[in-house]
């Protein structure tokens, strides 16, 4: 998989390792065959079996168990999204997660639900350098779709990492876009204040946006990406930043969250 961003003077290549957890599916509606059970169904070849535990969805979401009622009702079809530095100490990777519950009898079915998730893993340094591009890509292309039962296991477990070419953003352009947002939108100032206050206090906090603030997850990720791209290299809590969409659970650290079914958005809540 190799995608390119067409415009721009300077570019960089980002390599994304992939891991899928869920069940294999078949047919036009991707229903789960009776014999198919839960498991890791795809792992790109640079990941090890020992990474399965580190990249399990509940661990990444800091949950004991991922449950259907934790997914915002308006996000149930695509699932919840999360981007953060992987939680193990001194981790050098950042992860992007899309996780949802889908019916075993196919996409529009009425059967029992099961958990399906997809994880991208990138170098934490790439996440630090290209948050806007990575959030935009992950938001649009990371889908929790089941792998096909017809696809050979050796193929699924030796999948090549996805490679993307991203444009290096000029800091002046970032500031220009952010200045516009400060003038014309109501998300830019609270987001920057939230990040600045988080750096000062060192406390865990969550800033939640709702449908009144952003029309879609893509718009939210675009905005947050711009704000994170603006952060200086010396920002002290970069590793604790967590970008979440559609998940009704407050993560630890500095959490920027979007709940598409939330109307009167509770702007900030400080968690212990």
């Amino acid at each position: 998989m190799h995608r390119a961003v067409p415009q721009g003077d300077q570019t960089a290549e980002v390599s994304l390792e992939r891991l899928h957890y869920g069940k294999l599916a078949s047919g036009a509606t991707l229903s789960v065959p009776a014999a198919a059970g839960y498991g890791v169904t795809l792992r790109s070849h640079n990941l090890q079996a020992s990474d399965d535990r580190l990249l399990s969805p509940p661990r990444l979401m800091a949950l004991r168990r991922f449950e259907p009622d934790l997914v915002d009702p308006a996000a149930r079809r695509r699932g919840a999204f999360l981007a953060r530095v992987s939680p193990e100490p001194d981790s050098r990777r950042a992860i992007f997660l899309r996780a949802r519950f889908r019916p075993e009898d196919g996409e529009d079915g009425h059967g029992r639900l099961y958990q399906q998730s997809a994880v991208w893993s990138v170098a934490a340094s790439d996440w630090r350098r290209h948050p806007a591009a990575l959030l935009a890509m992950a938001g649009s292309e990371l889908e929790a779709l089941p792998d096909l039962a017809s696809e050979a296991e050796c193929v699924r477990f030796s999948a090549a990492p996805a490679r993307y070419v991203v444009r290096m953003l000029d800091p002046q352009d970032v500031w220009g876009a952010l200045e516009d947002a400060l003038d014309k939108s109501h998300w830019a100032a609270p987001t920057l204040e939230f990040l600045a206050r988080g750096a000062e206090t060192g406390e865990d906090a969550t800033l939640t946006y709702g449908a009144d603030d952003f029309a879609s997850e893509a718009a939210f990720l675009r905005a947050v990406g711009l704000a994170l791209q603006f952060l200086p290299a010396s920002y002290p809590r970069w590793r604790e930043i967590c970008v979440v969409s559609g998940l009704r659970h407050e993560s630890q650290g500095l959490c920027l969250r979007y709940l598409p079914s939330l109307r009167a958005a509770a702007r900030t809540s400080v968690a212990a």
């Binding site: 957890y21 069940k23 059970g37 839960y38 498991g39 399990s56 969805p57 509940p58 004991r64 168990r65 991922f66 449950e67 259907p68 009622d69 519950f101 075993e104 009425h110 059967g111 029992r112 639900l113 099961y114 958990q115």
Partner: peptide, 22 residues
């Protein structure tokens, strides 16, 4: 957790995942 299990059952059930025991 038990109330959640009952709710999931009422809504058609959720396949228990293999990531832990409950």
């Amino acid at each position: 957790d038990y109330e959640r299990l009952r709710r999931d059952f009422a809504e058609g059930g959720v396949a228990t995942d293999t990531l832990d025991t409950y």
